[in-house]
Write a protein that binds this DNA or RNA. Structure first.
Lengths: 339, 339
DNA sequence: TTGTAGGCGTTATCAT
DNA sequence: ATGATAACGCCTACAA
């Protein structure tokens, strides 16, 4: 491998001079600068950033931890993070936790050994607490994305889950629904709790009693199996609408409904959190509370880098991004016969 | 930061002994091993992989370069790559080229300075040649994904684009279509060329003359604007079916058709390469040639690591993965009135 | 079984 | 304007 010494030798200067040319630091004559640059070209020299990291005590590597790149929400988020990282001169290390805080832990160890300059962290859930604490113990700056973790005070970019849920449920109520089921993520996850709260508040404000029989807990990733629908449907007074707490769950719900011969929205209205991007472009069907996923990543990355580079320690910043109610056709007014 | 020396000191041994404990190398008494491990725990020691990389001359970092993580095809591919990399003990550096070989070049430079052990490379197109050559010049092993690049002989995992295209067009012909348009990617990209060839061959075998007026060139990413449809539709003998060379293009085609009040499949049949995953789960609409995207990533990663770790230099391996014709409802038989 | 010396490629500091 | 030296944290080779 060609090193800085090779360049130095070929250019008849010291390694130090080469280093200065590379980093535009210190004073060197235009003449030698030219000569050195020429040699670097000829020898195809590329500085070894590991060696650099070692002495500089910074890697210019950031890491992005999400639960599943396969979910369009995180996919856009990742894109925002990557674009911004690149723009700011950072490389991006990447990992999926699969909503599993143990996988997350492995990843945190990886990240620590890499000595990344910071982490963009979309936690699996409350159990991520110890993983985050580990990061703190090692003084690795991080910004939390999407899900707050009780016990952790840090910069965060999240959506307004409660408000979004409220909009969705309000909308269903406007359409005349009162038996509204909630297919939710695990309550170990802040967004699921908030979406539940929004759901409950909305019902309460409209004077609709909350029926725990209409509430299902899943993991955000468990969308294949629609078994839980049986519980909902066998209810003496079954729901006429379902609020799915995220896009995956909604897809699962709709598929399961169709398997049972239940049409959406004719027989059952369905709404959810998070959009489906391409799907929605193809077929504007799902009524959703859409979150600006790209911004989550982009702003999170921005905050992270600011914190890393900030000489002072500014106050903790919490950015709450609103969601948009996008009304399409998966929910419809309850026809009088059902009322 | 706590280093190997701190551990050594606290455990009353030399740094070397600690190193041996960490790497399970050389012989050390169970007693000191225990003691050292205990100290490492207490001090929260995590080895610095940069320092390690420097002396070992390997980083245990691989990189994945794709054109757009936002495309479900690459998203699944990325997932396969990540899972496999993790399983094999590698970290993954990540980048989007946006079908732009200049962005790709930036990324290659990044990758070189990181001294990654290898690269999983989904090229933007034929112009990626020089980027690949740069990798070769620096002796960085790589595996090409999805798109072959003329002039480069390397391990590759790709789909059978020609065959897939043929299946799709054969299917359309079976349905009675003969005026079949092709909305293709740039011919600077191997898959676009092969899909064109498959299209042409299929037509020829069925005795249908190829009409260049029915062929559109786009970039695989240009799917927003449906302007090109006008050319197709104003044809004196307009197409009754459209073969879109990838999922993005298909979405663009369908949206543009709908904007013009043209129904799919009633007024126009549409098929394409690559599936839409979640979309298709929600609404099995598009008839596609589906490629095993996850496998592209997983197998590619496997090949890459084998090449990196392989003591010998085995022959170049070319893996061609078949695509599946998935018949749904976006294409239908041509009714007699149009024949 | 354990330790010493030297080096991986770079840069900060301080001379010259 | 340029260079010598030491250091970043770790590991290989060799010695004890």
């Amino acid at each position: 491998m060609v090193t800085i010494y090779d360049i130095a030798q070929h250019a008849n200067v010291s390694a130090m001079t080469v280093s200065k040319v590379i980093n535009n630091t210190g004073r060197i004559s235009e003449q030698t600068r030219k000569r050195v640059k020429k040699v670097m070209e000829e020898l195809n020299y590329i500085p070894n950033s590991n060696a650099r990291s070692l002495v500089l005590q910074q890697t210019k590597i950031l890491s992005l931890l999400i639960t599943d790149i396969t979910n369009p929400f995180y996919t856009s988020l990742a894109r925002g993070a990557e674009d911004t990282a690149k723009r700011l001169g950072y490389r991006l290390l990447f990992g999926n936790s699969d909503e599993d805080y143990l996988k997350e832990q492995d990843y945190v160890d990886m990240v620590l050994s890499t000595r990344v300059d910071g982490v963009l962290f979309a936690p699996a859930g409350d159990q991520s607490l110890k993983n985050l604490e580990k990061l703190m113990a090692h003084k690795i700056p991080f910004v939390i994305l999407d899900r707050a973790v009780p016990g952790i005070e840090s910069d965060i970019v999240a959506g307004d889950s409660k408000e979004g849920a409220r909009k969705l449920v309000d909308y269903l109520i406007e359409l005349g629904h009162s038996r509204i089921a909630l297919v939710n993520g695990s309550l170990e996850v802040s967004t699921a709790r908030l979406r539940y709260q929004g759901y409950a508040e909305s019902l309460k404000l409209q004077g609709i009693e909350l029926d725990h029989e209409l509430i299902i807990q899943k993991s955000y990733r468990d969308y294949k199996d629609g078994e839980y629908l049986n519980q909902l449907l066998s209810n003496p007074s079954p729901p006429t609408a379902i609020f799915a707490a995220n896009n995956f769950l909604a897809v699962g719900v709709i598929r399961a409904l169709r398997e049972r011969g239940i049409r959406v929205p004719e027989d059952m209205s369905v709404v959810c959190f998070d959009d489906l991007d391409l799907s929605s472009a193809l077929d504007p069907f799902l009524t959703v509370a859409s979150q600006p996923a790209y911004l989550f990543g982009a702003m999170g990355m921005q905050l992270l880098v600011e914190r890393i580079q900030g000489n002072s320690t500014p106050d903790i910043r919490k950015i709450i991004l609103p969601s948009d109610l996008i009304i399409r056709s998966s929910a419809q007014a309850l026809t009088s016969e059902y009322v």
